[in-house]
Amino acid sequence: MENFLQQLINGLTLGSIYGLIAIGYTMVFGIIGMVNFAHGDVFMVSTFIALIIFLALTTLFSIPSIYIALFLVMVAAMILTSVWSWAIERLAYRPLRGSFRLAPLISAIGMSIFLMNFVQVTQGPRNKPMPPILEHVFYLYGQPGAANAVTISSRQIIIMAATAILLTIFWYVVQKTALGRAQRAVEQDRKMAALLGVNVNRTVSITFIIGAMLASVAGTLYLLQYGVVRFDDGFIPGVKAFTAAVLGGIGSIPGAVLGGLLIGLIEVLWAAYVSSDYKNAAAFSILIIVLIFMPSGLLGRPEVEKV
């Protein structure tokens, strides 16, 4: 039981990170019907940005409080990653928007490879470590050193709290403001939205920027949790987050978060109770089973055929 609780905490932490990345996939798919395969690599780039800024802040400027440093890192990573994502959309996707359906998809795969190689060349092929921070551990149950202790680290608390706060903010924007309404309008009928005065290109750009901002939060939190990052670290989390988006119902934002949490839990529980070798296989098997019985995902709306 204690072990299960501990794995639950670990799984939700991992799932939060997947959920944040998954929102970028699901929003972009919702608005222009394209799978942005470079999104996982945008996440990886944001992790590097966070690492570089963190090292700069702590060594060059010697910021005293680790929390202030972390906050600054997160804000800076959000801004810089947005610029990256905006540029990718502008250069690699927008010129192909009127083209055949597979063109932007292939362009996205190319962009993914480009980002990976670019970081490999500029940052080197090895793991980049970060000095461990925030190692304080709270004991929810049991004594330090006991085998059945249930613990939560301050890192895990920060990860879950940051995820919850940012999701609420972006959820509010998408549901309640003119921007969100415009996004939903563009999603349903791009041309008609333009004729009502909605700047479609700008709305799509903002969607990419929001996706990148959430991915950069995920990147910062990932760095905080694991302490290392490498040029190919975008691939597996990217694929997992895409899986989470499909599992939750692609196009649905709550679905993406739910899918992310589920994938995180499945992976951690499978590793703890069955075998850590097959944790990825387990996550994808669940995806296949769910899609057989619920083709539009857990929270997705069934596609209505237009006649």
Partner: peptide
């Protein structure tokens, strides 16, 4: 029409530009 949105929302989307200015590109709205 935006079939998946409500009748009221369809009419509010049409006022997008005025609202986008008023919400300071969503920052003030937030």
């Amino acid at each position: 029409l935006f079939a998946g949105m409500t009748a009221l929302e369809n009419l509010v989307v049409a006022q997008h530009n005025a609202l986008m200015h008023a919400s300071g590109w969503s920052i003030l709205g937030l």
